[in-house]
Design a protein around this nucleic acid. Structure first.
Lengths: 108, 108
DNA sequence: TACCACTACACGGTATCACTGAGTACCGGC
DNA sequence: GCCGGTACTCAGTGATACCGTGTAGTGGTA
């Protein structure tokens, strides 16, 4: 699916938050997870910029730990602010998708 | 609902296409329709930039006609390219919302 | 030992899009 | 005459995903 990039704006960050919320993880694994979910065009560079933004905005805790198969990994977990932001994201998503569906049905 | 603007990227243009597709209309009315649908923060300036973009990209036909209650209106209708684009928009939306729902359910 | 693939992160620059704010203009009622 | 509602335009801003490139650690293989 191409041409999704504009539509991903605002939602991709929420997706990353959700993935981190489901279990502690790191950038490379988040990219793989997104690709497996069907977001095949999302590349590492995009995910890392989001992770750095989350960190800068104080939504995640970071722990650097060595890996046995490569360079050290930065593991991310949600803090309270992150969980709050994630809730807000889902509220916004539900709101938006409901309106869009209403529009699609030709309703008012 | 605030903080929706980023999430609207890519979808708002599709919404405008859909509204035009449902019946010939003009900018001011499109704004009203969006507001009534629940997109309360969308203002005229935003809609007009989208309409000008649609026109520039050759997705709509334009007819200027006088109004009895104000300045002349620019009425928009979809052409073949516009209908094709609208179809693509709904395909993208369905694709995206399906992936997001999968993610929300913790699925893989 | 030299090379390559995979893993893992960082960063500067770009394009696109919704939004802002200011401006122009037409109409009717007080 | 002035103000509110109608109706469109346009230059500039900010946020975000994407691109390309660079750096680096590990393990396999020839």
């Amino acid at each position: 699916m191409d041409g999704l990039t504009e539509m991903l704006k605002g939602t991709l960050e929420g997706c990353v938050l959700e993935i981190i919320g489901q279990s502690e993880t790191y950038g490379y694994a988040v990219t793989r997870r997104l690709n497996d979910l069907g977001f095949t065009d999302v590349v590492e560079g995009t995910v890392y910029t989001i992770l750095l933004r989350l960190e800068k905005n104080g939504l995640v805790e970071v722990a650097k730990r060595p890996s046995e198969v490569g360079p050290p990994r930065k593991f991310y977990t949600l803090n309270d602010a992150g969980r709050s932001e994630l809730e807000k994201f889902w509220a916004k998503w539900q709101y938006l998708s409901a309106r869009i569906d209403t529009l699609k049905e030709g309703g008012r």
